[in-house]
């Protein structure tokens, strides 16, 4: 605005122009990345399409997959999606509870509680997830404890991810400043009220994005549960029909596509949650 004339100033300031250039550059970059993605995807699809293309004197042909097999088994393999998601959700819930307890234990000043927390994290992180699944499924029956494949899988995944995620929750809890605790104490809150009403809500908010990452990783690691042979999730179904008809290539490609789609969807959901959280409103 011109102070004297009151007219709207139409020309842009130097800063605005620079900002526009920057914005245009970013947009161009993103467009090029999207295009490259599309090309890579096209190459991948071509590679498994069985079609051939001649450039000059050389002919490139894609791998021939059995489309009949894919059509016949699509709904069978897709039927494992629900189970994959069910295992992942149950396991992440268990993992979050354990991670929170382990994080609180880690912040405790009582030696046995601190020790219990670090012992758990060390033991679980020091052994393979694959071994842990088999331990629950195959080793415990020797002690008279027989768990189903699903329960073994969820326990192992939950325990395993809980140990890794305890670090996330610990960082979340320490991100809440000491002033918050003091303000809560000053209005007379008990330590439990302070934790529940003031510290935890802020810590959990801090932890949501990384927990999202862990959940995405877990949906893929849930494939290991197929090793028990009794949980009919994506991987189990793919290997079953793949082996039976010697069409492992097609079966695994199908399972891979399903995992990839689920991952893309979850990543998208997570990015929405993250933007919303960063705005500072709930």
């Amino acid at each position: 605005m011109h102070i004297f004339t009151g007219k709207q100033d139409t020309s842009k300031s130097q800063a605005e122009l620079l900002y526009d250039i920057q914005l245009r550059k970013e947009r161009q970059f993103r467009a090029n990345v999207a295009l490259s993605w599309f090309v890579l995807l096209a190459i991948l699809i071509f590679a498994f399409s069985g079609a051939s293309i001649t450039i000059g004197s050389t002919t490139y042909s894609g791998i021939q997959v059995d489309t009949q097999f894919i059509r016949d088994n699509l709904s069978f393999i897709a039927g494992g999606l629900g189970e994959t998601i069910r295992i992942s959700i149950l396991s992440i819930l268990l993992a979050m509870a354990l991670a929170l307890l382990a994080a609180l234990g880690r912040l405790s000043t009582v030696p046995p509680i601190y020790a219990l927390s670090t012992f758990y994290v060390s033991l679980i992180r020091g052994t393979p997830l694959y071994l842990q699944i088999f331990f629950f499924f195959l080793a415990l029956p020797q002690l008279g404890i027989v768990l189903s494949g699903l329960v073994s899988g969820v326990l192992a995944l939950g325990l395993n991810y809980g140990a890794y995620m305890s670090e996330i929750f610990r960082a979340g809890l320490s991100s809440v400043g000491k002033g918050q605790r003091e303000a809560a104490m000053a209005i007379g809150m008990t330590p439990t009220q302070t934790m529940r009403r003031v510290i935890l809500p802020q810590a959990l908010r801090f932890a949501i994005p990384p927990v999202g990452n862990e959940f995405i990783a877990m949906t893929k690691d849930s494939a290991l549960v197929s090793a028990t042979g009794f949980v009919h999730e994506l991987m189990w179904r793919a290997t079953k029909v793949g082996r039976a008809q010697f069409h492992n290539l097609e079966a695994l490609i199908m399972a891979a596509i399903f995992y990839w789609i689920v991952t893309l969807l979850l990543t998208y959901v997570q990015s929405i949650i993250e933007t919303r959280l960063s705005k500072g409103d709930r």
Partner: peptide, 19 residues
């Protein structure tokens, strides 16, 4: 606890609950 109910405290860094 009883004393804290009788006293109101204002801090240098405000310490409002951000959530």
């Amino acid at each position: 606890h009883d004393v804290r109910l009788k006293t109101g405290m204002v801090f240098q860094e405000f310490n409002l609950f951000p959530h």
